[in-house]
Design a protein around this nucleic acid. Sequence first.
DNA 1: TAACTATGAATGAAGG
DNA 2: CCTTCATTCATAGTTA
Lengths: 198, 198
Amino acid sequence: MGDHGQDRNGSPTLHRSTAHRSETEPVRTRWTPKPEQILILESIFNSGMVNPPKEDTVRIRKLLEKFGAVGDANVFYWFQNRRSRSRRRQRQLQASLMADPRAAPGVTQQAGGRVVPHERPTSSSSSSTSSNNSTFPCSSSASSSASSYNFVMDDGSDDLFSMISSQTPFMCSSHVPRSHYQPGQCMAKLIFTKASLP
Amino acid sequence: MGDHGQDRNGSPTLHRSTAHRSETEPVRTRWTPKPEQILILESIFNSGMVNPPKEDTVRIRKLLEKFGAVGDANVFYWFQNRRSRSRRRQRQLQASLMADPRAAPGVTQQAGGRVVPHERPTSSSSSSTSSNNSTFPCSSSASSSASSYNFVMDDGSDDLFSMISSQTPFMCSSHVPRSHYQPGQCMAKLIFTKASLP
DNA sequence: TAACTATGAATGAAGG
DNA sequence: CCTTCATTCATAGTTA
């Protein structure tokens, strides 16, 4: 696996749950990604970049920062957890399929059997200035029309949205060869192609 | 794996969490250091011995064994991880300080200046004079100690308890058997200086 | 309100 | 030393 330098450093900006707390109170609250941030992360992950090198992690963080405080570490953890849990689900799915051959392959159906959920139901259609989406769109306008999209996230650049909703294959069903990843292609490429780097 | 001279072998005595399955269940669980063990390790680390040579690792293990099963490998890994993570934290701390200290980008609604996954609570006490420095204070690997250090006991000798409790600045008063432990201070000296070189 | 679930964060263990 | 993986802890959010 490891092939490029990685570093999960970052500054996870936390937030306090309740507004009334002593200023000197440690109260470590964890980062709670905004829906938009989750969308971005999810898109990147699904585009094949499941383990972004530090360099890209920083870029991703900068991008996410447009929607809320976040640190490199948060991004790093997110990908690590995502990867790990994705793998685990896959494993369990496999296991349960072997244990119970009558389970229909392809889609997990919870008929009577206590089976694990599928690959991320996601969407906590939370409120937070409710603006869009309930569950992942994943369809409709696909075709990444544009070509040279690049996010110069050094300052104003909000066309980000248009891109995000481009394509979302959602789970590479073909179980990518773990270990050495990086097929990288779809959106991640667009995001990270040139630009950005000062 | 083979490290330079270092040997992480030992008897990684594992624990079973709540073993209730088959009687012949492997259930490999990883070592979960007891609070007392953490305190000892932390103290040693903070005392400057961040990379104990094999001999000391063995001694440390023996000491720790009084509070629960543990192997040399566990001790070795502990120091390695501690070293690594300590350095990382400190490194990112620098990075985050460097990145525009005022008005964190996007950190408007969240806590004032809570950043970084918090380097060990270390600084809690004193911290003024150069005591705890996580960044490789010494290259060690064979340097520190290197000679006349010797452990107190080789078998029954519980004065260890009294020592620990006397040296405990905080903690040992409240909860959590895991995580959120506080760093000890400088008990390693006491541990290693009983001097009765064999 | 207390369970429960999803998931961010921490850390033991390896691999290289 | 570095990075990654597997587990586990802790908690924001949700549900009954």
